[in-house]
Design a binder for these strands. Structure first.
Lengths: 148, 148
DNA sequence: ACTATAATGCAACTTAGTTGCAATAATTTA
DNA sequence: TAAATTATTGCAACTAAGTTGCATTATAGT
């Protein structure tokens, strides 16, 4: 994606255009998998990103609904951007995330994101009385094509 | 649950019977929600549990398949025991966890566990080619009956 | 180009969890 | 029931991930 397109995305989310935001946005848009702070630092080594600035950049992306984050079992966070979310963004900031599944590979620990159908989950409904569900996420554990 | 029953459970999972394990097991069996290290420490204040010992106890429970843990968005872990898992325990140690949903209350941050039907998840299947799914977990976000 | 405001980068800090090791307690065997 | 064996406990020190405060620098609107 070219520089002007990236800038346009930032502006659509009411974010100022900065070097850090541009390169992080570009990387996340290209990545098929959700990335951790340290993966991003490594991938963007040439930019010599400051640790704190990167955390703040990622959190900003999440706050405005441009990216989303997943907590892993290793107690850190992975960040990802759905190109769908970027395209469907509306300016009323009602970003109730589109439902998605995260596939977690047991071999390489990578997390792949998949958009999924907006669908009911088949629970023992009696047990869920009184719980109002606003959003859901599905986590799949297994082996990814690369590791198989 | 009485002391003898608790001891019996520990023995079934090849764990030695100790004071710490008994009181933690008792608490988790009673709890409807998954509990964090600090919640457990508070609830069992009278026992003055050592921080490290409690972490090790919880991890041991998870390793042998007696309990399971959930990573939260606040990057800590919650621990829970399903009475079902305890009852269905087999001694071959093939504890592939039964599928379950976690309901995360946005208001009080409590996590409730629900067993769910062993069911296929309706994904855009084309996108999942090459990924072999061994286990899945569903996360529901919303408001619990207490906070509503 | 000037100004107001927001983002950046550094140091110090916090929080959750881990490691090493000596002391203690639980089970096995005699 | 006592001794021996082995696993668990408790303390101190440590690590890893992320946060806070603040001075400096860059962005966007006039």
């Amino acid at each position: 994606m070219n520089d002007e397109q990236l800038k346009q995305i930032l502006r659509e989310f009411d974010l100022k255009v900065t070097k850090v935001r541009l390169c992080v946005l570009d990387l996340l848009l290209q990545s098929r998998i959700a990335m951790s702070h340290s993966q991003i630092t490594d991938a963007l080594e040439a930019f010599e990103l400051d640790k704190v600035t990167l955390y703040r950049t990622l959190n900003t992306f999440v706050e405005v609904g441009l990216a989303h984050k997943v907590a892993t079992d290793e107690r850190n966070w992975l960040y990802a951007i759905y190109s769908e979310d970027v395209q469907q963004h509306n300016h009323q900031h009602e970003h109730h995330e589109s439902p998605h599944a995260h596939f977690i590979c047991e071999a390489c620990d990578k997390i792949y994101c998949f958009p999924i159908e907006e669908k009911q989950i088949d629970l023992k409904k009696a047990e869920l009385e009184g719980f109002s569900i606003k959003q859901h996420e599905i986590r799949l554990h297994g082996t990814c094509p690369v590791c198989k």
